[in-house]
Write a protein that binds this DNA or RNA. Structure first.
Lengths: 211, 211
DNA sequence: TTCCTCCAGTTTGCATGCAATCAAGCCTGA
DNA sequence: TCAGGCTTGATTGCATGCAAACTGGAGGAA
């Protein structure tokens, strides 16, 4: 198993919550699970610590990072900065077919909203946000966004919404798609910033996780 | 020597250019230089690779990352996004004394500009930009900014400026300080974004490094 | 009872050793 | 002479061993 994959596998376990936030990460157990020795595992943990998924306590091992309420605020602020910038950059760079694909996903999402199918809604929602960032033509931005985004993924895409907030979110997405189709970068950036601020507040209010 | 320090030391060598961009990083040599064995060194290299300072070639060792012209563009775009967001967040959060300290550094900077002392100017310049970000009250933002900023530090703070561009930069800094003192977040964000776009273009034009 | 001290078991961090991989020079055949 | 394959030395990636640090609990003093 190549080094990259070890990191990816553990990262996934952390993001998906299979390793509970705050839980100790026992080296030996993971070694057996992944069938590798301690050296590559420890290298992976160091990398994940640099990414913020893991906290390393000197001489006291690794723990899965736990999101505090202020982590959530900070991560949403950073996400807002990155997504809005990415959206603005994407407007002049994105291709027509990509816009069409986002529009299609948007329509799907609205359908799921009308059926009040929140998991399906969130899946489309996430796909749209990621597609916009992917279209920004900036690999560094995409990488950092993915890293930040991963840390709040569960909070962001699992927190239940009230009917009222959900409606607002859908309206904001309508506006986003509109701005994107008009390739109005500054407008898209503004909407994304507002949208993310709303989302962040809601997650904070909901207790930022549920787990 | 604790793990953190190993990473910091090598990172500094890379940022300062003591290890040339693109140069192979010989494990054994660094081991002797830092007086550690290969295991902690390799862990550090993995972390630096995750940060983008180093590229790891499977079975072929580590090399110091080399900035391409598009890396420079991308990093400046991300910097602009982060600094402008940080500036906007800082306006309501920054304390009066911090504003005063930035104003003082600004005055210093102007003095150095008038003396056309570019290294001293850049030192103040960098201090101002970092102080603004530091004031944003968002540790995640600060961390990511520092990481991104480090990768273009040399390009950003070493590239010579033409007289005309230099004058514009100083004017932009006047406007920044002004907005900050009025705590006008959106305005500060806008100025920072423009300022960074200008700087990025200039660095790209100048050949993005000089080394 | 409560707090402190000490000790055994476990875990971490690092050094080292070994197999696999790679770079480079040499030999062979044309 | 030159192209292609092979072999040698060096380097990488990983497994393991060992010393230092921590955890938790038992025992004793106040």
């Amino acid at each position: 198993m190549p080094h990259e994959e070890v990191v990816a596998r553990i990262r996934e376990q952390l993001i998906e919550g299979h390793i509970a936030p705050g839980a100790r990460i026992p080296e030996q157990e993971l070694c057996r699970a992944l069938n590798i020795s301690r050296t590559p595992l420890r290298e992976a943990l160091k990398v994940l610590a640099a990414e913020g998924h893991v906290v390393l306590l000197p001489n006291r091992g690794a723990r899965a990072a736990k999101l505090t309420i202020s982590d959530v605020r900070e991560l949403f602020e950073v996400s807002a900065a990155l997504e809005s910038a990415a959206g603005e950059l994407a407007c002049p760079r994105i291709g027509d077919s990509e816009i069409a694909s986002i529009a299609a996903q948007h329509d799907n999402m609205v359908t799921h909203f009308e059926a009040r199918d929140m998991p399906a809604y969130y899946a489309c929602n996430r796909a749209i946000h990621e597609a916009i960032v992917q279209a920004c033509g900036n690999a560094v931005m995409i990488g950092i966004y993915e890293s930040v985004s991963a840390r709040i993924r569960r909070a962001r895409y699992i927190t239940p919404m009230t009917e009222a907030h959900w409606r607002v979110a859908v309206l904001e997405h309508e506006a986003m798609l509109n701005a994107l189709q008009r390739r109005d970068g500054p407008m898209l950036a503004m909407i994304l910033k507002t949208h993310l601020r709303h989302k962040g507040r809601e997650v904070e209010r909901a207790g930022y996780a549920g787990d």
